[in-house]
């Protein structure tokens, strides 16, 4: 078995372990941190898929940039939307004054 095959099998196993960890964590009394743990593990899984399965580790800067660009625009979209929803209560608070 080649080193490349072994690497992919280990990463595949690691992904299943992360899945087990995220299921276990969802039953723990983590309170407000629960979504952070769930999405944190999801990000870890996505990074493993991108880096090893999608072979970003072998790619040059241009291809990596094209991949990161999508997530950068997504982050802007989420940040702007959150700035609306999270600040609504501030405006409501001033309206009462």
């Amino acid at each position: 078995m080649s080193a490349g095959v072994k690497r992919l099998l280990v990463v595949g196993l690691g992904l299943q372990v992360l899945l087990a960890a995220t299921v276990a964590a969802s039953f723990l009394p983590l309170g407000p941190f629960k979504p952070w743990v769930g999405y944190g593990i999801a990000v870890a899984k996505a990074v493993l898929v991108l880096w090893f399965f999608m072979e970003m580790r072998k790619e040059g800067g241009l291809v990596r940039l094209a991949t990161v660009a999508a997530f950068a625009w997504l982050a802007i979209m989420f940040a702007l939307t959150a700035s609306d929803y999270l600040s609504r209560s501030w405006i409501a608070a001033y309206a009462d004054v």
């Binding site: 995220t22 299921v23 039953f27 629960k34 979504p35 769930g38 999801a42 996505a46 898929v49 991108l50």
Partner: peptide
């Protein structure tokens, strides 16, 4: 990858 993020969004949020 899309499913990796759908999983906590749909299923894990209300797990316990």
């Amino acid at each position: 990858i899309v499913w990796i993020f759908l999983y906590p969004t749909i299923y894990l949020a209300g797990a316990s």
